[in-house]
Design a protein around this nucleic acid. Structure first.
Length: 169
DNA sequence: GCCAACGTTGGC
DNA sequence: GCCAACGTTGGC
């Protein structure tokens, strides 16, 4: 898998949702404890990269909005915090194992672009999230895939409703 | 709640 | 270094 400047990031909405990100503006994406995902965060995430914010373990799962990377990879403090559920004794201040990035809110989709919908869309068949057994919580997507999903999510505005896209900047 | 798929751990 | 056991993820 190769870095593309565009990502899909999974979050359980019960834990942290796109609504929470809209409220907070930015968030530190802590708690990733998978080496492959860690390597992406550490090596490939760049400020400005586009993020599809994916809601997992919910009904229905799907892309709920957009974010962008606002701070590149740096040591994940939650790994060093004995009180944190993400604490990991392997990680030490002088030799941090886990990495976090900061992401900023960009847009909340007016309607979730569901996993079913992704699956049925031409041009998205290569999405890793559609692959069986793919559990990576941080996945590269292509620019083209990002744009397709973005269009689907932002194009669902109800007539007369408020614009779903409030650009962060 | 089930369970397939996957990653990690630890005995050997 | 192998691999069985175990824990987790996440759609269904």
């Amino acid at each position: 898998m190769k870095a593309t400047g565009y990502w899909l990031m999974k979050s359980e909405p019960d834990v942290y949702s796109i609504e929470a990100l809209e409220r907070d503006g930015t968030t530190s994406w802590e708690g990733v404890r998978n080496y492959q995902a860690r390597n992406f965060l550490r090596d490939d995430f760049k400020v400005g990269d586009g993020v599809l914010f994916y809601h997992s373990s919910c009904e229905p799962p799907g892309v709920a909005g957009l974010a962008r990377v606002s701070r590149a990879g740096h040591p994940d403090p939650s790994a060093l915090d004995a009180q944190s559920p993400y604490f990991d004794a392997k990680s030490r201040p002088e030799a941090p194992v886990w990495i976090t990035v900061e992401v900023a809110f960009v847009a909340r989709f007016a309607r979730l672009v569901s996993l079913d919908e992704l699956r049925g869309t031409e041009g998205l068949t290569g999405l890793l999230v559609l692959k069986r057994g793919m559990r990576l919580s941080v996945q590269p997507v292509t620019q083209r895939e990002y744009e397709i999903v973005k269009k689907m999510g932002l194009g669902t505005r109800l007539k007369g409703g408020p614009p779903p896209f409030s650009s962060g900047k």
